[in-house]
């Protein structure tokens, strides 16, 4: 996986650019996620964008980097399920589904049809002046987690083969 012979090691340029670019990608993804309910963007595209950031880390730093540097544990080969970081990805996927479904059910609990969304505007907020909170963000967040979890699982499992 990572390491190998010296000539296959990514260049310093690639490593440095990755360090700079990944945060930018992630912030853009979050922005797309938050504006998605009434502007271009949304949970799906934000999830895909986040996955590209992780894909970049995988390609430049190797498959084990996330586990050794972020989770501080011995890397495991992500084969099958319940092993390696794939386990966490699976959890993200399941949690996303639960959030999206739960958001829809909350409307039912309040007496509205499944998936009904609402929006609230707060006037006179400092700096923002007018601030908007839309319940659709919850659903988008669920979609985001599902997409990130599913794509990263595929990436990790297929990448390990």
């Amino acid at each position: 996986m990572s390491g190998g012979s010296l000539d296959r090691e990514p260049t310093v340029i690639a490593r440095t650019v990755t360090r700079l670019v990944v945060p930018v990608i992630l912030v853009t993804a979050v922005a797309l996620l938050l504006q998605g309910h009434n502007l271009p963007g949304g949970g799906f595209i934000a999830g895909v964008l986040t996955t590209t950031a992780f894909a970049l880390i995988y390609i430049i730093y190797g498959l084990d980097y996330l586990e050794t540097e972020l989770l501080h544990r011995r890397p495991t080969v992500p084969f099958g399920t319940g092993t390696g970081i794939v386990r966490e990805y699976g959890n993200v996927f399941a949690a996303g589904l639960a959030v999206a479904g739960g958001g829809g059910l909350a409307a039912v609990a309040l007496g509205f049809p499944f998936l009904t969304q609402g929006v609230a505007f707060f006037e006179g907020v400092p700096v923002y002046h007018e601030f908007e909170i839309a319940s659709a963000v919850v659903f988008d967040l669920g979609v985001y987690a599902v997409v990130v979890g599913a794509l990263l699982t595929i990436l990790a499992v297929v990448g390990a083969e």
Binding site: G82, G90, F93, A94, A95, L97, A98, G101, L105, V108, F114
Partner: peptide
């Protein structure tokens, strides 16, 4: 909804 919620719950409790 029952089928959907069951699917999600069985996914969460898969361990």
């Amino acid at each position: 909804l029952v089928a959907l919620v069951t699917a999600i719950l069985t996914l969460v409790t898969r361990r």
